[in-house]
Design a protein around this nucleic acid. Structure first.
Lengths: 152, 152
DNA sequence: GTTGAAACGGGGTCTAC
DNA sequence: GTAGACCCCGTTTCAAC
């Protein structure tokens, strides 16, 4: 399914605020409520809309310290990669993990309370993972942009 | 406001699926519907719940190619930093941008359709920004983990 | 915190255009 | 695509415990 211009605007609105009623959406889209309803259902059925979630303010729940950590493994066999990935999946501080091209193998986005919590995470969790060669961490000094809306 | 154990579980449920009814939530929390309602309102009022959004499947809207780009500016005056940040804010391909510690100044998460689209983005947008010294891009080979649920 | 009731309005479906 | 009517049920508020 290929979303048309109206679908794209609808996706923008729902990505910004999924609690809007179909009536509110219909006014912004110059459509009838029924048409809005059917378009949303179609976007859900095709999987373009994956799910609906609440976004939590990370500062207010003591997760305001953002660290990006690049990791190099000692070897690159499938066994090592798979094992590492499985272990990373289980770490709740790791919000994102990508196998990447370049000098390092993985890039992790880590959310913790502060530097002390990050130290604790490094010492007790990250560096205890098997097959890790080296790591290189960068701390977020300032979050310039953090967008959840995909412009489609 | 400090969320208690029930609030934390409620936050987990709402971060996973914000479309659940209060009745469904009440069953999982062993609470009355009214109590769930009041807890949610409190979490919203205190700003712990920031907003509710639809999550779009990026592959289905031609944004499945993920690139992390580290950028170094030629100078680090406030003027240069501010100008760069303002320009980055306007780029819709840039989903996230952090001012970071370390060798590079900024880390950007960029979503585009494919390598050709990234090339186009680099040539026509990123490298035309003023004051950029050098860049270093890593491409996502595999998304191991991409979590939106903050464990609180 | 709980239950129960009541008012309101949106979701979802259907009919007709 | 539109408008209107319909029922159901979730939200929201309230009273009483």
């Amino acid at each position: 399914m290929q979303p048309d211009a109206i679908d794209r605007k609808l996706l923008k609105l729902l990505q910004e605020n999924s609690k809007q009623t179909n009536k509110e959406l219909s006014l912004q889209l110059n459509l009838s409520v029924t048409a809005v309803y059917e378009r949303i259902k179609k976007l859900e059925k095709t999987g373009i809309i994956h799910r609906y979630v609440a976004i939590v303010n990370k500062e207010k729940v003591d997760k305001g310290f953002v660290v990006f950590c690049q990791i190099k493994l000692v070897q690159h066999t499938k066994e090592y990669l798979t094992k590492f990935e499985k272990e990373v999946m289980a770490l709740q501080e790791v919000m994102e993990c990508y196998h990447i091209s370049g000098e390092y193998d993985y890039l992790l986005k880590i959310l913790v309370k502060d530097m002390a919590a990050f130290r604790e995470f490094m010492v007790t969790k990250l560096t205890t993972l098997q097959h890790i060669g080296s790591t290189q961490s960068s701390f977020s000094i300032n979050e310039v942009k953090c967008e959840t809306v995909l412009k489609v």
